[in-house]
Design a protein around this nucleic acid. Structure first.
Length: 571
RNA sequence: UGACCCAUGGUGUAAUGGCAGCACAAGAGAUUUUGGUUCUCUUGGUCUAGGUUCGAAUCCUGGUGGGUCAACCA
């Protein structure tokens, strides 16, 4: 029995996922001299989303767990789709999630010279050739998964001719699309990716990093595996759809004769009530179904951040969902749970009324103001207390009063008593209604001075506790209430004649004016609060002095509202 | 009708030939100056048919179901 702690063996000795098993197996067998080196390799052609967060947490998490390293590498092999805007946002998102690539920021474009050399090696070995067929011809002669393809007539060109043509391609002697470099493998392979795949294409386009130095660019397949090899990545972790590419990567590595990383594929994240494909996300933005990539309804990292998600909650989510090879469809309520769990411990409590109805305490002295002491966070006494002004008139939620309540209703109703949070017990005596609409305009109550919060007689039990905001001291703020972006659990699953857009939730955003206790004036952008009994809210960057804007990140669990809904459905 | 991958409660994920466990969701109760939190409990699962074995979620074979692959995208 050895006492040495193997890397990754935490004190709690949690079970390993299949990737950790492979890594520990490699560590035991001494491959890579005990090195663990991973990478996160996005293409800078869009914003990162929660699915990328899973991959980021996985790769950086593994690096951290096994005392290894993790690179950030931009796979920027297609200049026409890429932009520095995306490079910047991706770096910001990775950092925000709490990960650090230190001095290991790389680009596939860093390796363009090396990759060109690799291509020449293949040509010299007779393993690659310049092909003059058009894209259509190449496509037509590739065959189908069940039928073999046909060999290109240019497949038998001599090494010298290929070398010279490839050099001319590089020199810019040919138009876009007139020639490509192809690997010479097997046009009858059952694996489509082995049927003489394109290695280089001509693209007279400016690259966001290499400018006009190149007019030929390697395909992703010819760049990715070699880039991993150059960086001496030990475990190249990617999503399942690249499983069929692996034999090709292995072929390149073997034929070129360079270091071989081990590729491991895992199932990408799918989540309910949203879409995850870049194409669809882009469409939502471009067609203004949402207000940009960072719209709080988007599953993008910047959207979640603006919504009020914390890095901890997302990391915890990634940890909780685990990693495996089978397709998965994660309930968004798990993400929401992770946020609540985090913010419950951290968020300062405040009182805010979203849908107000006015209350007057008839037996309370006119003009009197009492400062009530309120606890900032019952989960964390170190967060201290604050004072909240109480006056004769204040607002409560319209939902917190019922004229003819059912027996299970614990809130305010004629003749009933409730506690006002951090203040008095009050009793409802009567209500004023608008004679035309029947809508309640004012609730008349009386208070019991002996029940002031903290006083000896204040401990009388009443069933309900309501939040409230003094009319005189209320601060008004814009509150943006978000709901699911889609009405359907899986918007990607579309019946005939419909698209995912047909399932957009028309009520995914409601903007209201709320009344909030004066403490809110101390809030600054990105601060997070629990509005008691309502939910968690984050200060939106749109906020201006004197005009605060809040996003509802997630509502509190609401077992009353839920049971109400169930009742309605039963009747 | 090809190749490859996958199959454990509603959703995820463990169990590595030896008691099917955990989380979320759902339901019940206790506590509570948030119908929140916390705590306790409950419901519910190995796709199917064979085989190997003292013993199979696990290994083998067939079936079924799902996914991926036919951009000069990544």
């Amino acid at each position: 029995m050895t006492e040495i702690n193997k890397p990754g063996e935490d004190k709690e000795s949690k079970s390993l996922n299949f990737i950790e098993e492979i890594i520990e197996e490699d560590l035991r067998s001494g491959i890579n001299d005990g090195r663990v080196h991973t990478r996160f390799p996005p293409e800078p052609n869009g914003y990162l989303h929660i699915g990328h967060a899973k991959s980021i947490c996985l790769n950086f998490g593994l690096g951290r767990k096994y005392n290894g390293k993790t690179n950030l590498r931009f796979d920027d092999t297609n200049p026409v789709k890429e932009d520095v805007e995306y490079v910047d946002s991706i770096m910001e998102d990775v950092k925000w999630l709490g990960f650090d690539w230190e001095d290991r920021l790389f680009y596939a474009s860093d390796y363009f010279d090396q990759l060109y050399e690799y291509a020449c090696i293949l040509i010299k070995k007779g393993k690659a050739y310049v092909c003059d067929m058009t894209a259509e011809e190449i496509s037509e002669t590739r065959g189908t998964p069940t039928r073999p393809g046909k060999e290109s007539p240019y497949r038998t060109r001599s090494v010298e001719e290929n070398l010279s043509l490839f050099e001319k391609m590089r020199q810019g002697e040919f138009e876009d699309g007139t020639k490509v470099l192809r690997a010479k493998i097997d046009m009858a392979s059952p694996n489509m990716h082995m049927r003489d795949p394109v290695l280089y294409r001509i693209l007279h386009a400016s690259h966001h990093r290499t400018g006009d130095k190149w007019c030929i660019y390697p395909m992703y397949d010819f760049a990715h595996g070699q880039s991993d090899s150059i960086e001496r990545i030990t475990h190249s972790i990617c999503t399942l759809e690249f499983e069929v590419h692996r034999p090709l990567y292995d072929w390149f590595i073997r034929e070129i004769g360079i270091y071989a990383p081990r590729q491991i594929e895992f199932a990408r994240l799918n989540m309910t009530f949203t879409v995850m494909s870049k194409r669809k996300l882009l469409e939502l933005v471009n067609n203004k179904y949402v207000n940009g990539w960072d719209d709080p309804r988007m599953p993008t990292i910047c959207g979640l951040r603006r919504r009020g998600y914390t890095p901890e909650s997302i990391r915890n989510f990634a940890e909780t969902i685990g990693v495996a090879k089978r397709d998965n469809f994660i309930d968004v309520s798990l993400l929401e749970f992770c946020l609540r769990e985090d913010l419950n411990k951290k968020a300062k409590r405040m009182m805010a009324v979203l849908d107000p109805v006015k209350v007057i305490i008839d037996n309370y002295p006119d003009g009197q103001v009492e400062e009530m002491e309120a606890i900032n966070n019952p989960e964390d006494p170190s967060m201290g207390k604050r004072m909240v002004p109480f006056t004769k008139t204040f607002f409560i939620e319209r939902d917190d009063f019922m004229d003819n309540p059912p027996s299970k209703f614990f809130r305010l109703a004629p003749g009933r008593e409730v506690r006002l949070r951090s203040a008095y017990i009050i009793k409802c005596n009567s209500v004023d209604k608008d004679p035309a609409t029947g809508k309640i305009t004012l609730i008349h109550c009386s208070y019991d001075p002996a029940t002031k919060s903290g006083m000896p007689d204040s401990n009388r039990k009443v069933k309900g506790t309501l939040h409230w905001v003094s009319e005189q001291f209320a601060i008004t703020a814009e509150v943006r209430l978000y709901d699911r972006l889609f009405l359907k659990e899986n918007p990607d699953e579309t019946p005939e004649g419909k698209t995912y857009l047909d399932f957009l939730n028309p009520d995914s955003l409601k903007i209201i004016k709320a009344f909030i206790e004066p403490e809110v004036l101390k809030a600054s952008i990105d601060d997070k609060f629990q509005f008691e009994r309502i939910g968690y809210f984050s200060v939106d960057p749109d906020s201006k002095p004197g005009n605060l804007v809040f996003n509802r990140a997630v509502a509190l669990k609401d077992s009353w509202n839920k049971s109400e809904k169930v009742r309605e459905n039963l009747t």
